[in-house]
């Protein structure tokens, strides 16, 4: 019987500053024990608790895809004491990872369907995982059209630029990346995510949409989908709440009868419509 509160020890393999404001950094983590790596079976949409001894834990979406190997990628915004400490750590330092936690995007159930992905800001992490998983040769053939809509405030705030550029160039997916305002050197789309989504106008036929972003983006993106004739059970969203135990006990992330950490973080709009907006 495993003690699921005890994190797996990992070492930091690589640290990368992701954004121009330096508030976001990516960390590639390597398991110290290979049996832990095999025990850590995850699918896109899940998260993990990053554990820094002496500081605590923070729940962060897994940005890597299991198709990329055994190392894990996390992109972390610097807000509290744990993330601030993490931002000061370097390659070789020892920390912990506990998980995988929560449910995942219903990708297997969506076989044969078209997939629309809408990401705002740094909530793109688990959707990076999803894209890598979907575009992997083992999986790409199982799905129809894949549309990836992603927006950030400025070009310098966009994450994973090399990767989405590669997806764009591969022709395997329709990639629409936008920034809020015109910016020097930016030749791509300009405008907020909801507007761009309206322009791209993804069709609801035989499709699901995965939406992840700040509350304000979700609030304005939802009506766009409604207008295009999407049904609530086709719209899938990932929530964020304060979490601690990550396994549905401690009560912090409780929204109605659901625990975001265990029953979520991925919910359909149909489910969310029946829950209090305590997220």
């Amino acid at each position: 019987m495993r003690n699921t509160y005890v994190p797996y020890p990992v070492s930091i393999k690589e640290v990368r500053v992701e954004t121009e404001d330096k508030q976001l950094k990516s960390f590639w983590l390597q398991f110290l024990n290979s049996e832990d790596a095999s025990a850590f079976n995850y699918t896109p949409g899940q998260f993990a608790e990053l554990s820094i001894s002496g500081y605590g834990e923070i729940p962060i979406g897994i940005a890597s895809s299991p198709t990329e190997g055994r190392d894990l990628l996390f992109t972390v915004n610097k807000v509290g004491s744990v993330s601030s400490r993490l931002h000061n750590m370097k390659a070789g330092d020892i920390m912990g990872v506990r998980g995988p936690l929560g449910n995942s995007y219903p990708l297997r159930a969506a076989k044969g369907k078209n997939i629309v992905i809408v990401a705002g800001g740094f909530a793109v992490t688990t959707l990076r995982s999803t894209m890598n998983w979907l575009l992997h040769p083992d999986h790409r053939g199982d799905y129809g059209e894949i549309t990836f809509i992603y927006g950030a405030r400025t070009p310098g705030m966009l994450l994973y630029t090399q990767e989405w550029t590669a997806w764009q160039n591969s022709g395997q997916a329709k990639v629409c990346v936008t920034v809020d305002r015109e910016a020097p050197g930016w030749s791509g789309l300009v405008g907020f995510v909801p507007t761009v989504t309206g322009d791209v106008a993804p069709k609801p036929d035989n499709a699901i949409a995965l939406i992840c972003g700040p509350p304000i983006m979700i609030k304005f993106t939802q009506p766009v989908f409604d207008k295009l004739g999407w049904q609530s059970d086709q719209i899938i969203m990932s929530l964020e709440n304060r979490m601690k135990c990550g396994i549905g006990i401690c009560g912090r992330c409780n929204v109605g009868p659901e625990y975001v950490c265990k029953d979520g973080p991925v919910f359909t709009k149909t489910q969310l419509d029946k829950l209090p907006r305590e997220y």
């Binding site: 509160y5 005890v6 020890p9 554990s51 001894s53 002496g54 020892i94 912990g96």
Partner: peptide
Amino acid sequence: CMMRFKNVQGDPQGMIMQA
């Protein structure tokens, strides 16, 4: 108390949580 750890980064046993 759920776990303990040696609060030394760089030590082979350092920073690893033990139940």
